[in-house]
Simulated assay, not measured.
Amino acid sequence: MAALTAPRGALLAAGAAVLMAGAYYVAFSAGAGERRHAATRDGGSLVDLLVQHRGPEASERVWALVDEGGADALEELEGLHDHDYEGLPLDNEQEGVLIEAVLGLGALAQDSDLAYARVQAMSDPEFWAAHCTWTSGRRDYAPDFFTSFGIQSLGVAGRPDLDEQLGRLRARDANFLHRFAGDVVQSSFYGDMRRELGGEFLSWLRGSSHEQDEDFEAWTATESGRNWFEWANACMRGPRPPASSEEGGG
């Protein structure tokens, strides 16, 4: 997200979500946690389901793969972003599935070093500059939009080195932080919720947005949450700083 909103920088819900990224609002169906994962390989790969506008089935397949785990699941989730869409226009629902796959990779990354390496790569805009091969309604903003979820997925993974990973992002230049500080905060929040909820975390992530909002408000009332929130607001205050040579003009 380019900015924190009240009460959260990103509102992620299972049935539907409204995500704020700068001036853009995107609604997408994320599939209820209680829904049976009926999608199978016989129904087509994730790429097939996506390009055929079979959004609900694609959403189910993402989370079925997360539940399945293993090398094949990782390969199929990564393949959704690695596929060359050759400029194919994707609508909000289709991009919503791509977002879910980012978060799904974060879930796999809790136990998979290969998935974790992928999530770390997805937290950099350069990754998405090379991987956004579809035509997006966000135009040139699409790489930043997906970078936001890559950063948040570090918290979804909830690895022991999360603080180190977030410190790496906090050391980036002012332009990067102006764009992504809210997502760094969101990632820290997710990491704390994963530690608190344990095995119930993914159900929470795909559950009630109202419950998530309440938990975020409670988190920002803690010393750690308040410090993160104030840091992000300071980073995003004022006009966007010019890009440094490190950021390559992004």
Rank of each mutant, 00 (worst) to 15 (best):
R172W: 02
R194V: 06
T40P: 02
G182A: 15
L154E: 09
G70Q: 08
Y190T: 05
T220D: 04
F28K: 00
G44V: 08
H210P: 02
N227M: 10
G250P: 00
V26Y: 01
D124I: 02
G104T: 11
D183H: 07
Y141C: 01
I151F: 08
L65A: 04
G55V: 15
D48W: 00
E95P: 04
A30P: 07
A3W: 13
N92P: 00
D111Y: 08
L88R: 13
W128Y: 05
D173Y: 00
S224E: 14
A130V: 01
E76T: 11
Y116H: 14
V102Y: 05
M20H: 08
D48F: 01
S224H: 11
V18D: 09
A101E: 08
A130S: 05
F127I: 08
H37D: 14
S153T: 13
M122I: 00
G33K: 03
W219E: 10
Q120W: 14
G249W: 04
M122L: 06
R36H: 05
L49F: 05
E214P: 00
R41C: 03
E230N: 06
D144W: 06
N233E: 15
A73I: 08
Q52R: 14
D144A: 05
S123T: 13
W63G: 02
W63N: 05
A101G: 08
G22D: 14
S123Q: 09
G249R: 00
D113P: 08
F28C: 07
A3M: 15
V102S: 02
F229L: 11
L90C: 10
R8A: 15
R195D: 10
A30I: 02
E214D: 14
Q186P: 00
Y190F: 15
Q152C: 13
V156I: 12
S59T: 13
S209K: 04
A14Q: 09
L177T: 01
W219F: 15
D72V: 06
C235A: 13
L77G: 10
D215P: 02
L74E: 14
A38K: 03
A23V: 10
A232I: 07
V97Q: 04
W128C: 03
A2F: 05
V97L: 08
C235Y: 02
H53V: 11
D213W: 10
V119S: 09
P89G: 01
A30N: 15
N175T: 00
L90D: 06
L108T: 12
F127A: 10
R206S: 11
A218D: 15
I99Q: 12
R61C: 02
C132W: 11
A14F: 09
A243W: 00
R240M: 14
S45F: 05
S148F: 14
G70D: 09
A232C: 04
A117I: 10
L90Y: 09
E196N: 03
D67G: 13
S209Y: 12
I99S: 07
P89L: 05
A23S: 11
R194W: 02
